[in-house]
Amino acid sequence: MTDTSPSRSSSDRTDGGFAVVEMFTSQGCNSCPPAEEVLSEIDQSARERGRPVYALGFHVDYWDHLGWADPYADGAHTRRQEDYARAFGSGGLYTPQMIVNGTTDFVGSDRRQASAAIESALATAAITPLTLSVTETDGDETHRLTVDYQVDRVPALGTINMAVVERGLENDVPRGENAGRRLRQDAVVRAFTSERINGDLGQVELSVPATLDPRRAMVIGYVQNDGHRAIVGAAAVPVAS
Rank of each mutant, 00 (worst) to 15 (best):
P6G: 08
S9A: 13
S10T: 14
D12K: 12
V20F: 02
V21K: 04
T25S: 15
Q27K: 06
N30A: 13
P33F: 08
P33C: 05
P34A: 10
A35V: 03
E36K: 00
E37G: 12
V38C: 04
L39E: 06
E41R: 14
I42S: 00
D43K: 06
Q44V: 03
S45N: 08
A46D: 01
A55V: 02
L56C: 10
V60I: 14
H65I: 00
Y72R: 00
G75E: 05
A76N: 11
H77W: 05
Q81G: 07
Q81E: 12
Q81W: 08
Q81K: 07
E82K: 13
D83R: 15
A87Q: 11
S90T: 15
S90K: 04
G91D: 09
G92N: 12
Q97E: 14
M98Y: 06
N101T: 06
D105Q: 15
D105W: 07
S109I: 02
R111A: 13
R111G: 04
R112K: 13
R112Q: 14
A116S: 12
A116N: 13
A117M: 07
S120Q: 15
T128Y: 09
V134G: 02
T135Y: 09
E136K: 14
T137W: 00
D140W: 01
E141W: 05
T142N: 13
H143W: 15
T146L: 08
V147A: 06
V147W: 06
D148H: 13
Y149C: 03
Q150N: 04
V154Y: 11
N161Q: 09
N161C: 06
N161Y: 06
A163K: 02
A163F: 10
L169T: 03
P174R: 09
G176H: 01
G176V: 00
R184M: 03
D186N: 13
A187W: 08
A187I: 08
A187S: 15
T193N: 04
T193W: 04
E195W: 01
N198C: 02
G199L: 08
G199F: 08
L201W: 00
G202N: 05
E205G: 02
E205C: 00
L206I: 07
L212E: 02
D213E: 13
D213F: 10
P214N: 07
R215A: 15
V219M: 03
Q224P: 05
Q224L: 04
Q224K: 06
N225A: 10
D226R: 15
G227K: 09
H228M: 01
A230P: 00
I231D: 04
V232F: 00
A235P: 05
V237E: 04
V237S: 01
S241D: 13
